[in-house]
Amino acid sequence: MKYVLLICDDEKVSPSMEEIAADPAYQAYEAEVNRRGAILGGARLRPVAAATTVRVRDGETLVSDGPFAETKDFIGGIDIIECDDLDEAIAIAARHPYANRGCVEVRPVWE
């Protein structure tokens, strides 16, 4: 099955790409995902300060600053994975460093 991991936190810390690349916790996560041959794609997102939300209402495009929802945690990245079942997806999500301070939402892909 395909899942998208929505990797969320409160954005209190925002390490650079270089810091992340050097962080053993991220290296361990990457090694685990590779070991399982699970990764299909993914992206790290810029903080919500850089977010723009688009809505179309009555034919008019409404653009606003910020994320679509006011919540404590924001989506900071996504990983698209392919694995056997929800238990494996949970195991991978639990290895993501963000799971320790934010949360990872596991969403099956509509196939």
């Binding site: 099955m1 899942y3 056997d84 079942d85 929800l86 238990d87 997806a89 099956p108």
Partner: peptide, 14 residues
């Protein structure tokens, strides 16, 4: 069905 919860007795570690 949709989330892919496996139909099994969980492995020892779980």
């Amino acid at each position: 069905v949709e989330a892919g919860i496996p139909y099994r007795v969980p492995p020892a570690e779980l």
